[in-house]
Design a protein around this nucleic acid. Structure first.
Length: 767
DNA sequence: AGTGATCAGATTTTT
DNA sequence: TCTGATCACT
């Protein structure tokens, strides 16, 4: 093993070597937090700690993967593989599957994702005949979640007088009922939602001392990354796991706590010392990532927050450039200016695309940026947003898989019972559900006995339901004998999904078909991977349940495009936490957007927004550019925006006072005369539709007045042609609209999917 | 039961 | 703009 300590500064080395007893590392942005964690694991192993006895918990899959990769670099794959490393949710899901029967769950329980949870709660609200305006499903779910992460069970909730009085006072007396119904339904469906994975883990450790003992003995060393983002129940679990050995190491930065909206409790880090009086604390204050300008600017923002652990982040790096400011008139122009600035930087300093990141507050803002980057042929990659596994067609087929693994999964069942269409309509399903609830039975059990039941539906429907049950049962029967791919293929074929999508020749249908294909390919790859060897030396079949069991915990497929990694990154600030880029653009810096409008009512939320902005700035190594627009197209309407208060909070020493540096004067003039009056006149149109139409036209007009690109002959392109794009590769034109210089083609690319391209910019080659 | 048209509502962040 | 819900019609 290499000399671990030589790559570390004094503070880092101290933290790495402090292996006994509780310790906390307060690690400022860019101060080498991940380095400390990974080197600490390596150091433990070098001190003969068995990797099996090390548990490292992270917040995201990505962080876990990266940490693992770095530990592998340090100690080699054989040792590193045995370290128990993963997200809270995935590690606990694994433990829960193993111990499930103790809690009355089968080990093949399903995990409901946020969408499943919402559908279920919606259904319950409807069944209870409650007004979904008062009992807004999103709101109800939030209440349930926040109770659960604070260890308040439905029974606790319903027997608490304060809660009852409060809920009466806000005219939502049935919240407690909804909570307990929701929990019962999840349990009956053998399903856990995200919070249950934490809640049930804690219950397991609390109520089964032998289990607790076992895991305390197993996890002699516990490390927690991003500790500031843990919630109460995560805190409790970590505490009880390490209660015996007390070898607990938490690493975090209170200035980067940005998940309070989801129950994260900053008190966990601020009050850590109260729980562990003999705590060793290490502060990492030297930033290795950013220039002095960036570090100082970030500091000048964060001092506006009241509650924090005192620290002073500093750097020995170069002074660097001041923070740049771009102001634009519309969101479209913002996109164009930011894309233009990236292009300019790229040319001037011979940079690669991957040196740039564009960060925004909300996913919806990505669209404008995408369009602008596409127009000047800068390849980009969007992180987050609608992930592969959340797409409709993927969720549909995965629901079949889940139903096959766990027949009781009600949400999966509801999704597919009549997809593809098999003549089981809404009314019939509703009657079956009412019956199941009345008899207090699981939906699946009712379906199994549909022929014997006296539900008021036609015999035709009953027999179709029964056929469905038989089909699913035949899948389930193959679960342990076929490998994942064989079974998935069987399901895709015999349910008729493949046929259904194949017959749909609309662009969306083609796209969906390709996505299903992609999923099947992934499953094939999984099935053919080196097979695990069982204890008795037999080969373990890579079955479908192993593939899908934690699918809900995956965020995106994020397989890096192997052929082309050189792309600009687009993502939300939340998604950017833990990453770094030489050049960072923070766009949409406007009041009501960043800080978001929801955060303005309370100081606590506003401070969280400020921390979010702090996170955004500190992603940058060399340069930060902040951009805002005076008008923004939101919810199909133009809103007039003011620059964010956070811009003013940056000490003027560190920010460019000169705005609009990259606006071409002529372009600007042209727009003022041509563009703004359109907006004004548009506003007077009452008819919403007309307004939208008109505005859309203006937007297109605006788009076409783009920089100096020479229109190629766009008339040559026709529907059906095979074309090639510099970045997207080969594809087929499936639709063309617009005329002359504005002609837009919808092209289906084999690897990327469907894209809309303005022909005169796209530089397509006919092949 | 299935289809298509029309309308309302949403958007903050994610395991 | 996009999605899901609802309603009228086949």
């Amino acid at each position: 093993m290499i000399n671990i300590l030589k790559d570390l500064n004094k503070k880092q080395a101290e933290a790495v070597q402090c292996i006994d007893g509780p310790m906390m590392v307060v690690a400022g942005a860019g101060s080498g937090k991940t380095r400390v964690l990974t080197y600490r694991i390596a150091y433990l192993i070098s001190k003969s700690v068995d990797p099996f006895n090390i548990l490292a918990l992270t917040f995201t899959n990505k962080a876990a993967r990266e940490m693992k990769a770095r530990v592998v670099e340090l100690v080699g794959g054989i040792e590193a593989r045995n370290v128990y490393m993963g997200t809270f949710h995935s590690v606990f899901a694994r433990i829960l599957r193993y111990e499930a029967n103790k809690l009355g769950y089968p080990s093949n329980f399903s995990i409901y994702d946020a969408e499943d949870s919402k559908r279920l709660i919606k259904k319950i609200i409807k069944e209870q005949d409650l007004d979904d305006k008062i009992y807004n499903p999103g709101y109800v779910l939030k209440v349930i979640s926040s109770e659960k992460v604070n260890l308040i069970s439905p029974d606790d909730y319903n027997s608490n007088n304060e809660v009852i009085n409060y809920n009466n006072s806000i005219r939502r007396p049935k919240l407690g009922l909804l909570y307990s119904l929701y929990s019962k339904r999840c349990f009956k469906a053998s399903a856990m939602d995200f919070d249950d994975l934490l809640f049930n883990t804690y219950i397991l450790l609390r109520d089964f001392p032998d289990v607790l003992y076992k895991y305390q003995k197993k996890f002699k060393y516990v490390l927690v990354d991003e500790y500031q983002d843990t919630n109460y129940i995560q805190y409790l679990i970590v505490k009880s796991l390490s209660a015996d050995n007390k070898n607990l190491c938490v690493v975090g930065d209170d200035s980067q706590s940005i998940y309070a909206f989801r129950g994260a409790d900053i008190k966990n880090i601020l009050n850590f010392k109260k729980d562990y009086p003999d705590l060793n604390t290490f502060k990492l204050e030297q930033n290795y990532r950013s220039t002095k300008m960036i570090v100082n600017a970030a500091n000048s923002v964060i001092v506006n927050n009241k509650k924090q652990i005192p620290k002073k982040i500093w750097t020995e790096n170069n002074t660097g450039e001041t923070i740049k400011l771009i102001k634009s008139i519309t969101d479209n122009e913002e996109g164009k200016l930011v894309a233009g600035s990236i292009f300019e930087n790229k040319m001037n300093y011979h940079l690669e695309n991957k040196n740039f990141a564009v960060l925004y507050r909300t996913n919806a803002q990505s669209r404008v940026m995408e369009e602008s980057l596409r127009k000047i042929n800068i390849p980009y990659r969007i992180y987050g947003g609608l992930s592969f596994y959340k797409r409709r067609e993927i969720k549909d087929i995965v629901s079949y898989f889940q139903l096959t693994v766990n027949n009781k999964n009600e949400e999966a069942l509801m999704r597919v019972i009549n997809y593809p269409k098999r003549g089981i309509g809404k009314n019939s399903i509703e009657k079956i559900i009412v019956f199941a609830n009345k008899m207090n039975k699981n939906l699946w059990n009712v379906l199994e006995e549909i022929n014997k039941s006296d539900i008021d539906i036609s015999n035709g429907v009953k027999s179709r339901v029964y056929d469905f049950v038989i089909m699913i049962k035949s899948f389930s029967a193959h679960l342990k004998t076929k490998n994942a791919y064989e079974l998935a293929k069987e399901i895709a074929d015999s349910t008729g999904i493949i046929k259904d999508l194949y017959e749909d020749k609309s662009p969306e249908g083609v796209n969906r078909y390709e996505n299903i294909e992609e999923l099947l390919n992934a499953i094939k790859e999984f099935s053919e991977k080196k097979e695990d060897v069982n204890k008795d030396n037999s080969l373990e079949i890579k079955t479908l349940d192993k593939f899908i069991q934690d699918i809900a915990l995956l965020t995106d497929a994020d397989e890096d495009d192997k052929d082309n990694n050189d792309m600009v990154s687009l993502m939300t600030v939340h998604a950017a936490k833990g990453l770094e880029f030489p050049y960072v653009y923070i766009v949409g810096m406007e009041e009501n957007l960043f800080p978001s409008i929801q955060s303005l009512s309370s100081m606590k939320d506003l401070e969280e927004e400020r921390r979010l902005f702090y996170v955004a700035i500190t992603r940058a190594k060399k340069q930060v550019t902040i951009s805002y627009s005076e008008n923004r197209y939101r919810w199909g309407q133009i809103s007039i925006c003011e620059p964010s208060r956070f811009i003013e909070e940056i000490d003027s020493k560190y920010i460019d006072s000169q705005e609009e540096k990259s606006i071409n004067k002529e372009l600007r003039f042209g727009r003022k005369n041509n563009y703004m009056p359109h907006i004004d006149s548009s506003i007077e149109i009452k008819d919403n539709k007309g307004f939208n139409r008109k505005f859309k036209r203006i937007r297109d007009l605006n788009n076409s007045s783009n920089m100096n690109y020479e229109p190629d002959d766009t008339k040559a392109f026709q529907v059906g042609m095979q074309v090639e794009h510099k970045i997207f590769g080969k594809g087929k034109i499936i639709n063309i609209d617009g005329s002359n210089s504005n002609r837009k083609a919808t092209v289906f690319f084999k690897n990327i999917g469907q894209k809309q391209l303005v022909l005169k910019f796209a530089k397509l080659k006919i092949i």
